[in-house]
Amino acid sequence: MRFPRNKYTMIQIREIDKKLWNSYAVSERFHTFLHSWNWGEFQKSLGHVVRRLGIFEDSHLLGIALIVTVRARRGTFLFCPHGPFLDIERRDAYEALLSFLRGAAQLDKASFIRLSPITKLSQQSLDFFRLLDFRRAPMHMHTDFSWILDVRNSEDALLHAMRKTTRYSIRKAQKEGVRIVQSCDRAELSAFYKVYALTVKRQHFVPFSEEYISKEFDAFQQDDHIRIFHAYYRDQVLSSAIVVFTANSGFYHHGASTLTFPKIPAAYLLQWEIIRTCRMRGYSWYNFWGIAPENIKHHPWEGTTLFKKGFGGFSEAYVPAQDYVLERKYWLNFAIESFRRWKRGFD
């Protein structure tokens, strides 16, 4: 497919292959799996058009951008999940990419371009996107705040750095005979989804469909980059997690639990075994994924955030999702998403 040439002649944008993509995407600078090759394959399985773009200066690869064309009832838009992987010091490269995306948006009849940057939050980074004529999106697409644990320390050191009650809960679960099983068998998804459905009913959040989770699993399984973890007590699954492995990290992407035995802290031991698995696989980081922003009371993720922080680690805050408006139809999407944000309690 041909796209309009951009005026930034030193910068070239073109689609690249898996080998070149992965050689750049595995950088430890970016704590995400949403820009992996496998995430692109997952998006294709959902029926989206996917472009994997390399941003070049002459023959040097400056960055990459995974672009997904999303066709929703509220309108079509181009979306870059946790990307692009491109230094904001290179404004010329960003402008060239944006020029290319405007051409792609015209071909796809998209009304706006949305970036969900992995750029660390600062006044400088916010000003950067504002000067490129982006505006803050009305709704986050992926987490803007992550909780990350460096797992390169010894197990004793990791346990020592945890909150006292977290450490106690791990040992109690071990003493009570909680058993952790991990699997790459797709058949285990049914057990996960049963617990997940109970979690949704209890916590009242909008769930991912079983088809969505299954297709995500298939996309990462082909490269051995995903595992299902179950915590068993008396032969019942009390807690489950789906963990993605990529970019020298493990990512806690989906979680579920039951209250069948409320005094058995199975979820704590489950997380500890995931941390140990990351270490055994030679990774540097375990990413607990989304947490609530600091100093916001009654956030829907308040309890989950307290749980995750108990294991030790540090937070990373990213620039919130940014929209580049192309057509007036954007404002219908803006109104719908603003209402959804309010309804879900994120205001």
Rank of each mutant, 00 (worst) to 15 (best):
residue 197 A to V: 02
residue 12 Q to S: 12
residue 275 I to V: 14
residue 220 F to Q: 02
residue 304 T to N: 11
residue 253 H to A: 12
residue 79 F to D: 08
residue 8 Y to S: 05
residue 99 S to A: 15
residue 188 E to R: 15
residue 296 I to L: 13
residue 153 N to I: 02
residue 184 C to W: 14
residue 21 W to Q: 00
residue 107 L to V: 10
residue 178 V to T: 05
residue 18 K to G: 01
residue 278 C to Q: 08
residue 165 T to V: 02
residue 212 Y to H: 13
residue 39 W to F: 15
residue 246 T to N: 09
residue 242 I to F: 13
residue 187 A to G: 14
residue 284 S to H: 15
residue 41 E to G: 09
residue 147 W to V: 00
residue 254 H to I: 03
residue 23 S to F: 04
residue 345 G to N: 12
residue 317 A to W: 07
residue 223 D to V: 01
residue 100 F to I: 03
residue 85 F to A: 05
residue 281 R to M: 14
residue 131 L to K: 15
residue 195 V to G: 01
residue 102 R to L: 12
residue 255 G to W: 09
residue 3 F to R: 10
residue 126 L to N: 06
residue 319 V to A: 04
residue 202 R to K: 03
residue 48 H to F: 13
residue 286 Y to P: 02
residue 42 F to P: 05
residue 66 L to W: 08
residue 201 K to N: 07
residue 272 W to Y: 11
residue 53 L to D: 04
residue 193 Y to C: 02
residue 340 R to Q: 14
residue 279 R to I: 01
residue 301 W to C: 05
residue 141 M to G: 11
residue 218 D to C: 05
residue 76 T to R: 12
residue 224 D to G: 13
residue 232 Y to L: 08
residue 205 F to P: 00
residue 28 E to D: 15
residue 274 I to V: 14
residue 187 A to K: 15
residue 246 T to E: 10
residue 148 I to P: 03
residue 140 H to G: 14
residue 226 I to K: 15
residue 78 L to Y: 15
residue 330 Y to G: 07
residue 320 P to Y: 07
residue 233 Y to W: 11
residue 167 R to N: 00
residue 82 H to D: 07
residue 276 R to N: 11
residue 245 F to T: 03
residue 326 L to D: 11
residue 227 R to P: 06
residue 60 H to I: 10
residue 3 F to M: 07
residue 18 K to V: 02
residue 135 R to K: 11
residue 225 H to K: 12
residue 255 G to V: 03
residue 309 K to G: 01
residue 176 E to V: 06
residue 329 K to V: 05
residue 335 A to D: 06
residue 10 M to L: 12
residue 176 E to Q: 13
residue 195 V to H: 02
residue 18 K to E: 10
residue 248 N to R: 07
residue 55 I to E: 03
residue 321 A to M: 09
residue 111 S to R: 08
residue 8 Y to V: 05
residue 132 L to S: 06
residue 132 L to D: 07
residue 243 V to F: 15
residue 86 L to Q: 05
residue 99 S to K: 12
residue 241 A to R: 13
residue 162 M to Y: 00
residue 245 F to P: 01
residue 93 A to F: 03
residue 282 G to E: 08
residue 130 R to K: 10
residue 2 R to Y: 15
residue 182 Q to T: 12
residue 204 H to N: 11
residue 120 K to C: 09
residue 6 N to M: 04
residue 286 Y to L: 04
residue 244 V to P: 06
residue 137 A to Y: 09
residue 148 I to L: 14
residue 125 S to P: 03
residue 249 S to A: 15
residue 201 K to C: 02
residue 180 I to H: 08
residue 145 F to G: 01
residue 113 I to N: 11
residue 103 G to M: 09
residue 84 P to T: 04
residue 209 S to F: 01
residue 3 F to S: 06
residue 321 A to P: 09
residue 265 P to S: 08
residue 245 F to K: 09
residue 301 W to D: 11
residue 156 D to K: 11
residue 12 Q to N: 12
residue 283 Y to L: 14
residue 156 D to E: 13
residue 193 Y to P: 02
residue 209 S to Y: 01
residue 171 R to C: 00
residue 24 Y to Q: 07
residue 266 A to L: 02
residue 174 Q to Y: 08
residue 120 K to M: 12
residue 153 N to H: 13
residue 149 L to C: 06
residue 249 S to E: 09
residue 286 Y to R: 05
residue 212 Y to W: 12
